[in-house]
């Protein structure tokens, strides 16, 4: 697995407690080896996942964000993943305009019994993030960058149509 041979990247996972967190547990119980980049944040339901948590992670410098919930119709809270699906799909579609590579965010459904599927999802997603490499930082990395940016800003480049 290439992910283990090179430097780890920062991947944040948001998982619902009842299905996907359980699925990740099942993968652990089955000793299904996975890349170690992912750090999982447990939430009660995918309906609790504010798309802004994902944006916050990405703007803070996460290289990838993976969200997983119960399969549609199987939500422990009946409707949470239906709302989540709408919110997450919209975020996924919106990211390109911000200049954040939309491939760095993914959402999927994994049930508590799908340990192998979880292993597959984590492995594939980690692989994808490693192919994309570290995410470019939104903030300047050095004082030189800052000054260059300040200069640009002073020149007041706006929207193309504002001249």
């Amino acid at each position: 697995m290439p992910a283990q041979d090179i430097r780890e990247l920062r991947i944040v996972g948001f998982l619902c407690n009842w299905c996907s967190y359980g699925g990740a547990d099942t993968a652990g119980v089955g000793r299904f080896t996975q890349p170690t980049d992912l750090r999982i944040i447990r939430v009660p339901c995918s309906g609790r996942i504010d798309p802004l948590f994902i944006v916050r992670s990405l703007l803070n410098g996460a290289d990838g964000v993976l969200v997983s919930g119960c399969h549609p119709r199987d939500c422990h809270y009946a409707e949470g993943n239906f709302y989540a699906r709408r919110r997450l799909e919209l975020l996924k579609r919106f990211l390109p305009v911000t200049g954040i590579d939309a491939r760095r965010f993914e959402y999927t459904w994994v049930s508590a019994s799908e340990g192998q599927r979880w292993q597959h999802v984590v492995t594939e997603f980690t692989h994808r993030i490693h192919e994309l490499g570290p995410a470019p930082s939104f903030n300047p990395m050095s004082e030189v960058d800052w000054n260059a940016l300040a200069l640009q800003a002073a020149q007041g480049q706006g929207c193309p149509c504002h001249g």
Binding site: V12, R48, N60, P140, W146
Partner: peptide, 25 residues
């Protein structure tokens, strides 16, 4: 706010994993 899973609690977890990059100027 959902108690025990408030915005601040989840944001604290996010910030623990991805500390915001601040370049003080």
């Amino acid at each position: 706010q959902l108690e025990h899973f408030t915005d601040n609690q989840i944001l604290a977890e996010v910030n623990a994993l991805c500390p915001p990059k601040i370049f003080a100027n």
